[in-house]
Design a protein around this nucleic acid. Sequence first.
DNA 1: CGCGTTTGACCAGCGC
DNA 2: GCGCTGGTCAAACGCG
Length: 581
Amino acid sequence: MESTMRSEWKVASVVVDPDRYYSSSFFSNKPTVLNSLPILTNYRAGGGDMFPIRRCGDLVLEKPPVADRDCGGGDDDPDESVKRVDVVDFFAERRFDDRSQSRDGCGLPVKRESSHGEAAAAPLRELDVNTGLNLVMANRGSDESDDGSSASDSKRAKIELSQLQTELGRMTAENVKLKEMLSHVSNNYEALQLHMMSLMKQQQSSLQPENGPEPKNGDHEKPAEKKHGVNAGLTEPRRFLAIGRSGSGAETDEVLSHSSSEDGTQSGSPQAAGKRPRGDSKKDNKMVAVREDSPNSDTQVWTADKPGNNTNPNTAKASIDQQSAEATMRKARVSVRARSEAPMISDGCQWRKYGQKMAKGNPCPRAYYRCTMAVGCPVRKQIQRCAEDRTILVTTYEGNHNHPLPPAAMSMASTTTAAAAMLLSGSMSSADGLMNPNFLARAMLPACSSSMATISASAPFPTVTLDLTHTASPGPLQLQRPHLQAQFPGPIGSQILTSLPFITNALPQIFTQALHNQSKFSGLQVSQDDSINAVTAAIAADPSFTAAVAATISSIISGGGANHSSNNNHNGSSITSIPPQ
DNA sequence: CGCGTTTGACCAGCGC
DNA sequence: GCGCTGGTCAAACGCG
């Protein structure tokens, strides 16, 4: 039977798991991303009904729905269309010259049909980020008649299937390359960590005779607290450093519990839980939080315990380190300045407003929010518009989330956590130990731009300010190259530090650069915005990495270098910055 | 009716 | 001790 139906068919849906390797945004608008598909070893061909389950790595060949077909003759016999299944070398198609392709409204390439005009407007690929990457090759026209299962057609199908297999093999090889690159990055990270540790040890040995016996205040330092100084960070970079002597005895002696003890065990009354102790007035009630990594690595359980309850001295030491670190993290604040007309920047978390107050010196009220993503989450934030420029929204975060975060919240959470860790480890050092901010930029962060840090004695709490108002892009708020200000309490006075790179900005930039380079290497088109988000989330998912980075930063802050007078120009000339896209 | 926001009151720290 | 300020609570209120 001769049919006028065009040989329309849907070649494939390539199903991958974006969460496993990339964020969904990574795939958006990336028609060539198949170069780096991780697993494409098994594929099957046949009618669509044969593939009720699509799994990662499946290449699905299926018959398009009848309604989708553009059949001139109106012959919609589905059986006949099945016989016309043809395999397109979509990998060859995939790489057709960019100059010869147009893009649809979503930025996806639209096949420009040269000889089969009817299909010119049909999308070559459709992207469904909800189900992973779903590349649909559709509507390949043919002027051949649909005469069923002709031998020539099946032969051509086999040939093209073999081509497909070849391409799959090539992609597997590319996948291996990607893995090698990842391994390379990991190795670099390890090497960097070792290098930093050696530098820290070197620094430790040089600082010890200079500093002499601590502390300035001469007050009772507990053995556990002695680990919280620079030395603690020297030996164990893979953890957050605790605040030490910051000029205020209250800051030092107070050990706050994490959320569970703060909101639960310290007092059953919500009011008592809400009233956060200030200064050193709560010494008698101080509790320590013991961090216990649960079997589920994604969650951490915090329990309250009295000091001295640790039976194992070693674990007690380590846990006290973490206790103190986390406790002080609770006090550290990370302030984000960003231009936004919206009343609140979207950071992926759920917040409940619990108060609003007029603050002195600012006609704009300050709003108080509390994280409501989990019961008892201690994280709070304050939102206030800048008095000088009311288009600038200042969001100040305090505390660490005690619950898993959605990917959307990872970026901000990791940023504030790392910044707070950096800040606290910096405040731990002596006031005159702030120093050599350029080192890290030169040594390990070639991809980040310069920024500035200010130390002020006026801040009641140690505060890091991330200034996003200088970013080039006025688009959606993203963590891009913030200028950085750090405010430390204590009699430090005002000092200007220069070129202190902001780690959680820089690291995504580094990885973005790596991805960008890799994308060039493999022909991918990778948006840096997309990859920043993906990489930031990936980094945030690895607390040890963040902790190590924070410790590294801390060593810079407490490094005692003499580059106070170094300027931005100097630093800027030594830093390769990634142009915003 | 439940949930989130508003707003006045309350508390604690700090400076004078 | 007093007043100022920041931070929080909780009843009242509004909205869907």
